[in-house]
């Protein structure tokens, strides 16, 4: 199982803060995104936004990164704290 989290404007636009997905044959962030688009086609424009960032297990990663069963994958816009 992969735990997927969304934050900030992206969370609000998608209308959901987290979903889970059976890891199955998913081994990368790109494959995870494709699996999400199969269920939610309207998410593609938001998750494919070049500004959208991804963290795996609370560490910022690239969209080309590998993921494993049990990982926590978070998508969010550029940060604006401080």
């Amino acid at each position: 199982m992969i735990n997927i989290l969304f934050f900030g404007k992206l969370r609000e636009s998608l209308g959901v803060s987290s979903v889970t997905m059976e890891s199955g044959s998913i081994t990368s962030v790109q494959e995870l995104k494709l699996a999400l688009y199969t269920e939610h086609s309207q998410w593609q424009a938001l998750l494919d936004d070049p500004n959208t960032q991804v963290a795996i297990n609370q560490t910022l990663k690239s969209m080309e990164s590998h993921i494993n069963d049990g990982d926590e994958v978070a998508f969010f816009p550029p940060v604006t704290g401080g």
Binding site: F7, G8, V79, T80, G81
Partner: peptide, 20 residues
């Protein structure tokens, strides 16, 4: 630029997310 916090501003007329 790195810590995952996001600000939303609530004004008298609207609400909007702050851009980087």
């Amino acid at each position: 630029t790195e810590a995952p916090f996001w600000k939303k501003e609530i004004t008298t007329t609207d609400e909007h997310w702050v851009e980087m």
